[in-house]
Design a protein around this nucleic acid. Structure first.
Length: 431
RNA sequence: GGUCCCGUCGUCUAGCGGCCUAGGAUAUCGGGCUCUCAUCCCGGGGACACGGGUUCGAAUCCCGUCGGGACCGCCA
């Protein structure tokens, strides 16, 4: 039975590196029908905060990584003490300066059998004796991590490779506790664009920042899993695909650079595939956050019309934030023209806009075909080609120089609002 | 400094001794479609860090060099 864990220390927000570690553990557990444990490593009272725990939990929830068991290490002090005392009684631990020290034999070496990087040999002289219990009575990481992994029956330890050098120490503790070793997998790091440690100056590192930028959780998951894992030539994976296909054997052992470009592309792919209702629910808070569309306006809008609009607009959006911005054109708000859009329409253009407004206003909503017929007939009558009229018409109705097909977007905005905006543009009004 | 890990197009990767004049994706450039942009389709340029071995044959195995990173705490 597979039992794995993600064990963050609550000293800050969940960054994308930690998220990927959590993801690999979760995928492996779900793929194999095993158990995924979330264990908060809050033994460092000085630096651990409840706020950080809340952030980590919120991040994992948003990513859709659900856990089967939850522990807080600080609550397991009695158990840690029991284990330490048993080692003390056995003479494997001694006390010095108020701290408890774990004895490591000076001769020989300790080999870490890592499933990813292979056998790594450490000379015991490098290990030396180390503290497992501080003089203030609290326990240190290298000790509690083993006690907890043993107690929780962890079968596969999948973690960042910054822990590889700690592993021989932990192996000595497993042995002292008389417990067989789990399988170890030390994952390579995620790097910034300069191949240095990923940090703030490389851009967003917090999972929640990606949520706020309008990235879909499935897209971030897809992106993170591809940093170190591949399945042939496939690039776009749904969550279900990943659970079905994921295998630890496919994991890479070299570090990967985190680059936004492909994440954005993947996000677009996931947005294109998303259910429209799901997409609307996700984009709603971002639209409302912009504070132009009010909650009343959102709920008053016809949901089918919004869905059609979102469908048209999403092909041009890399993120939900992009989509939220352009979706404002579907609401009864003043049209906001792009900064570099053309100046006021010419006299001939005004004439055409008015004619189009007259033709479109009485139409029934929801029929792009009907609008197309009306627009084409009007333009024929005015002696204007579609090519010439489309730009000023689109600009008048959407405020943008580019966008979805003219008839589709006119239909999605709706005849009455279209007519109003065409007339406003013809009159040179701001609204 | 010591110990350890890693090294294929700018980036993510496929490759696990012959299928590789190295494949895919992204980014970039060019073309097509079109009312615009995007999507989409077609095409271009772009990599096995370097040097030695082993082998009939190496991106793949071994050694060295160089480069990058991690850890060396009574932090996790």
């Amino acid at each position: 039975m597979v039992r794995v864990r993600f064990a963050p220390s609550p000293t800050g927000y969940l960054h994308v590196g930690g998220a990927r570690t959590a993801l690999f553990n979760w995928l492996f557990a779900r793929h194999s029908g095993g158990t995924f444990v979330l264990r908060i490593e809050d033994t460092d009272r000085e630096r651990s905060t409840d706020e950080a725990i809340e952030q980590i939990v919120a991040s994992l929830r948003w990513l859709g990584l659900d856990w089967d068991e939850y522990y807080r290490q600080a609550e397991r002090h009695e158990r840690h003490l029991d284990a330490a005392e048993s080692l003390l009684r056995a003479g494997l631990v001694y006390e010095k300066d108020g701290a408890w020290w774990f004895r490591v034999p000076e001769a020989g070496d300790t080999v870490v059998h890592d499933e990813l990087v292979g056998d790594v040999r450490f000379d015991n002289e490098q290990l030396k004796d180390f503290v497992i219990r501080r003089s203030d009575g609290t326990f240190v990481y290298n000790f509690v991590v083993v006690v907890d992994d043993v107690d929780m029956g962890i079968t596969h330890v999948i973690r960042g490779d910054e822990h590889l050098n700690n592993t021989p120490k932990q192996i000595r503790i497993y042995q002292a506790l008389g417990h067989p070793l789990p399988l170890f997998y030390h994952l390579p790091m995620i790097l910034g664009a300069d191949r240095g440690k990923l940090s703030k100056r490389h851009g967003a590192t917090s999972v929640l920042e990606y949520r706020d930028r309008g990235i879909l959780p499935d897209a971030l998951v897809n992106f993170l899993v591809r940093l170190g894992w591949a399945y042939g030539d496939e690039e776009v994976f749904s969550r279900e695909d990943l659970v079905r296909l994921f295998a630890l054997e496919g994991l890479n052992k070299s570090a990967a650079v985190f680059e936004d470009a492909k994440l954005l592309w993947l996000n677009q792919q996931h947005m294109k595939r998303a259910d429209l209702g799901f997409l609307l629910d996700r984009v709603e808070p971002l639209v409302l956050a912009r504070a132009r569309v009010t909650p009343e306006m959102w709920s008053a809008a016809d949901r089918d019309r919004l869905a059609v609009g979102a469908h048209l607009l999403r092909d041009r959006a890399k993120t939900l934030a992009d989509l939220a911005t352009t979706m404002e054109m579907l609401f009864p708000l003043p049209v906001e023209r792009e900064a570099d859009a053309a100046a006021a329409p010419s006299t001939a253009e005004r004439r055409t806009l008015i004619a189009l407004a007259d033709a479109i206003e009485p139409l029934t909503p929801g029929s792009p075909e009907e609008i197309e017929r009306a627009v084409r007939a009007t333009l024929d009558r005015e002696g204007v080609t579609l090519k010439d009229a489309a730009h000023s018409c689109r600009l008048a109705v959407t405020g943008r120089k580019v966008g979805p097909g003219l008839f589709e977007i006119l239909s999605a905005v709706g005849p009455r609002l279209v007519a109003e905006r065409l007339r406003n543009a013809a009159e040179g009004n701001a609204t």
